[in-house]
């Protein structure tokens, strides 16, 4: 019968314990390495935010230059141009 072919609960637990006991990390890094990783964790988001800010600023500058260059060609461009170059 199918039910009789199933291992008992005890067998399952013993198999599980033996299996899990055999799992070991191949490499245990020193705590110093882990701490170094923690100390550097803020760098990535800061670098990302900085890059994003720089990209936005560059885009604004580019749009401004374009408006200055082709200002008269777009409706209302002359007004914007006068604002941009106003002292």
């Amino acid at each position: 019968m199918k039910v009789d072919e199933q291992p008992s609960e005890r067998d399952v637990i013993e198999l599980l314990r033996a299996e899990v006991d055999a799992w070991r990390p191949q490499d245990v890094p020193s705590l110093v390495e882990v701490i170094r990783r923690v100390e550097g964790h803020w760098r990535r988001p800061v670098a990302l935010a900085s890059a994003l800010g720089a990209a936005v600023l560059a885009a604004v500058l580019l749009v401004s230059v374009l408006l200055l260059a082709v200002g008269p060609a777009i409706p209302g461009g002359e007004t914007i141009r006068s604002h941009l170059i106003a002292p």
């Binding site: 899990v20 799992w23 070991r24 990390p25 882990v34």
Partner: peptide, 29 residues
């Protein structure tokens, strides 16, 4: 090792478990 085994049981992958165990201790720290 104890934390590694729990993570290993959850993700069922040796390499991922090793990376995640380090992340666990980094978070705990």
């Amino acid at each position: 090792e104890s934390v590694f085994r729990t993570v290993r049981a959850m993700v069922l992958d040796q390499t991922e478990a090793e990376d995640l165990t380090q992340e666990v201790f980094a978070r705990a720290y």
